[in-house]
Amino acid sequence: MIWLGIETSNAPLSIAVVKDGQVLIEIVQNLKLTHSVTVMPTIQELLEKVNLKPSDIDGIAVSEGPGSYTGLRIGVTVAKTIAWSLKKPVVGVSSLKVLAANAQLFNGIICSLFDARRQNVYAASYTENLSETVIEEQHISIDELLEKLKEMSKPVMFVGLDVAIFKEKIVECLGELAYFAPTSLQLPRASKLIELVQNEPLPSVEEIHSFVPKYHRIAQAEAEWIKEQKRGNQ
C-alpha cells in the first residue's frame, strides 16, 4: 500500500510517501512559501525521486484542520482532487494530533496548539502515545486552556511553533509541570499523518466529494448573520 501524505495546515509544508509502513521520502520545510506554489511541484518531485507514478498511489492522508483556512483548503483540495481522480480514498487527520504525535513518547500530557490571534488558540491534549484525548481539539482562549491543564496536575509537553508566543504565560501558570518540545519536533510531519491512519479502516471513495476542512469556526460573516437572525426572532 502506497500512501501520499500532505500537510499544509499552517505555514510549514510537509509531503511524504510511505510504502507498506516504510517512509520512502519526506520533506518538511518552514519557509513560509505559498502552499499553492509549492505543493504540486513538491509532490511531483518526491514521486519522481522514488520512481513512482501518480497512479501508484493507493491512499492519501491530509491534515484536515484546524489551522490557516487557506492552507487547509489548498491541502484538502489537492488531496481530494488526486483521490477522486485516482478513485482512491482520502483520509483526514487532525492537524493538532499530527503535531502532538511528534512528542507521543512523552510520559504525561501532550498539548499541541496553533495561535488563533487575540489570546486564542486552536489546541488539543492527549496522553502518552495519543492513547486518550484529554482535551478535545477546539478554539479556546489560552488562559482557559492553561487552567484546564493545571487542574490535571500532570507534566505537560507543549508542541508547535506558536508555543513560543505563549511561553511566558505557560510557565507562569504551570511552573515546573511545563515542558517544551525541542526544535526538531516543532514542525508537523506528513509521515506522521500516514502513521496515524494506515491501520484504520479506509473511507469509501464515495465520501471524497463531501470531504472538507475542519475549520472549527464558522466564517465571521456567517456568525454575524446568525446573530442578526436570532435578534430578529426575539
Binding site: 504540486m40 509532490i43 501518480p54 489548498i74 483540495t77 482532487t81
Partner: peptide
Amino acid sequence: LIGINAAKAFAFV
C-alpha cells in the same frame, strides 16, 4: 486557489 489547485492536481494525475 481552489480551482487552480484542483486543476493542477487533476492535470498532474
